[in-house]
Amino acid sequence: MSERKLVDAKNTFCPGPLMELIGQMKMAEIGDELEILSTDQGSANDIPEWINKVGHEMVESFEKEGVWHIVVKKTK
């Protein structure tokens, strides 16, 4: 059973949100979705790059009230 886990990485800077995401990805199961929250635009640009490079699945990415939400599915 896959689930979506929220990773709150607001109020830190690159590469803090990416590292928090990776820490949570390590513990997640294949098929799980993780939604990372970041207030740092650098991370909002960099995290999708990382997802693409490493080969996980980018589900969606949007900004709401100054917070970027990036949703990734663990594929391996």
């Binding site: 800077f13 590292m19 990776i22 820490g23």
Partner: peptide, 17 residues
């Protein structure tokens, strides 16, 4: 001041992750 990740923590994560 702005709470950037500490460099020592990042080096540790480079090894761990």
């Amino acid at each position: 001041d702005k709470n950037a990740p500490d460099f020592m923590e990042l080096f540790g994560q480079a090894v761990e992750y």
